[in-house]
Amino acid sequence: MNPLLSVENLRISFPSRRGPVEVVRGVSFHLGRERLGIVGESGSGKSQTGRAILGLTPPSGRATADRLEFDGIDLRKASTAQWRQLRGARMSMVMQDPKYSLNPVMTIGKQLMEAVRIHGGKADARAKSLAMLEAVQIRDPERVMHAYPHELSGGMGQRAMIAMMLVTEPDLLIADEPTSALDVTVQIEVLRILDRLVSERGMGLIFISHDLELVSTFCDRVLVMYAGRVVEEIDAARLSEAEHPYTRGLLGCLPKIVGDQRPLPVLARDARWLE
């Protein structure tokens, strides 16, 4: 079976006063209908990788790849019209912060129904939107439909955004830190929703996060990024056997509920990891 998404040698650079800076330096991976985690610290290029797949690299940046293929479509040569058909309908993205990603002057209902209408399904837009809000465990969907983003808590806003991204039933969802702004218990609920979509509908999921432990319990496979490169690819269940010193260092420096190691081991960065 062909993979849903193939990325080979993805490079993204941004201009600076001292010439172009490469923030993603040759990332390659394939995604099937599975949960793939991308883990790394801020500045490791994990978010830019996710954006480039959707063609959302900022105008000042330049993304190149030897191969960037989604379900047989070469994304590098996609026209604007093709992108319009893909984004939202077949591949979509959940951003980290609902505060900045929802339209502040439109009610949630209006935004949700807009997504449904644009991608077919004009007649039952309202019913579909309500059902989707219920599916993401919003208890009072009627109220949320009429609410503006600022009237919702972070967790509710994030669930509303996930509903918006999923209402078109995409084949690929890129979730960029979708639960970092949420409480742990809400976080688990949101992950269960995503989990069900992968296992029941065969959606492909790229889960970008800085939280190694969360990723290791949620995803099937993990890419660990450091300074724009994938330094290690490993089955999530075997993360504790990771070999790269960066992965091991990241795992080691997390405080644990059980066990009392002090001082906490800190990560000693090695210039060789950059190569």
Partner: peptide
């Protein structure tokens, strides 16, 4: 970040 968190927690401890 996790690695920076460890440094700051160690600092607070000390």
């Amino acid at each position: 970040d996790a690695s920076i968190q460890a440094e700051v927690l160690n600092l607070l401890d000390r």
